[in-house]
Design a protein around this nucleic acid. Structure first.
Length: 259
DNA sequence: ATGGTGGCACCGCCA
């Protein structure tokens, strides 16, 4: 049984975070790292630096915003960007890695609950559910990961009362995420750590001392079908990666499996 | 604390 290691990371610029990512890849040696918010057009993606370190990468970016990538030890197969109609190629990438269907997404944030983009976000999550229904079954080994921009439960956010109307915690988006997962996905962190508060993956740059003050959010996720959950040995949030000189506002979320 | 910081772009937008 060879262990499988998967991870997700919102880089908030892959060029600024390149040394952090290379150090992390060297240390953890994952089979696949899903990256969001690369913020680099394809010509500016640091593919050569990754290749020199021995990593394969598929990526699709645009100027300033968005951008997704899969960094893998072996070449990813059946790589597809965007939904079936080709929309949102810089927010969604799908591929097969070691026989596992990997879906890496940067879900739209939504701006505010009154903004039209919030409805786009809710619909976007619905399209993920449609994608799952169209191509897969819960009996398949599926991993949906990424910055999903949703804190699923009150224990996943530092101020559930004050942030009740935030686009990442509002009841409508939490119910929408639950609706997607009801297709047959398990929240891997909660699979191993049910009911434990304080497992955060994101801290707002704008807070003064967000980590000491515990002002975090759990909005990055590894969602897996039961065949993978049963094989899962460990899940961890890599706080050590936050010791980097210029850390991202998110950190790495890692899952390990015996396959 | 209704601000704050950070990244990329360009003279603001997005998170």
């Amino acid at each position: 049984m060879a262990p499988l290691t998967v991870a997700t990371f919102n880089a908030n610029s892959i060029r600024v975070r390149l040394s952090q990512i290379l150090d992390w890849l060297e240390r953890v040696q994952p089979d696949v790292l899903g990256v969001q918010e690369t913020k680099a057009q394809d010509d500016d993606f640091p593919r050569d630096a990754l290749a020199e370190a021995g990593w394969h990468a598929v990526f699709r970016g645009e100027k300033s915003y968005n951008g997704v990538a899969l960094i893998t030890r072996e070449p990813a197969e059946e790589v597809q960007f965007g939904f079936d109609d080709g929309s949102d190629p810089t927010r969604l990438v799908r591929a097969v890695v070691r026989g596992i269907q990997v879906i890496n997404s940067y879900v739209p944030q939504g701006k505010s609950i009154e903004h039209a983009d919030y409805q786009v976000k809710l619909a976007w999550l619905g399209r993920i559910r449609e994608l799952l229904e169209a191509h897969h079954t819960p009996q398949d080994p599926i991993l949906w990961m990424g910055d999903l921009n949703v804190a699923p439960e009150p224990i996943d956010i530092h101020d559930p009362v004050g942030l009740a109307d935030h686009v990442d915690f509002h009841i409508d988006v939490r119910e929408k995420l639950a609706e997607v997962c009801s297709w047959g996905l398990v929240d891997l962190l909660r699979h191993h750590h049910p009911d434990e508060p304080g497992h955060y993956t994101y801290w707002d740059y704008r807070a003064r001392n967000p980590i000491p003050e515990g002002k975090g959010w759990r909005i990055d996720h590894l969602m897996v079908t039961p065949p993978l959950a049963e094989r899962s040995t460990k899940v961890w949030i890599d706080v050590e990666a936050r010791l980097a000189e210029r850390p991202s506002d998110h950190t790495f979320l890692v899952g390990e499996f015996d396959l």
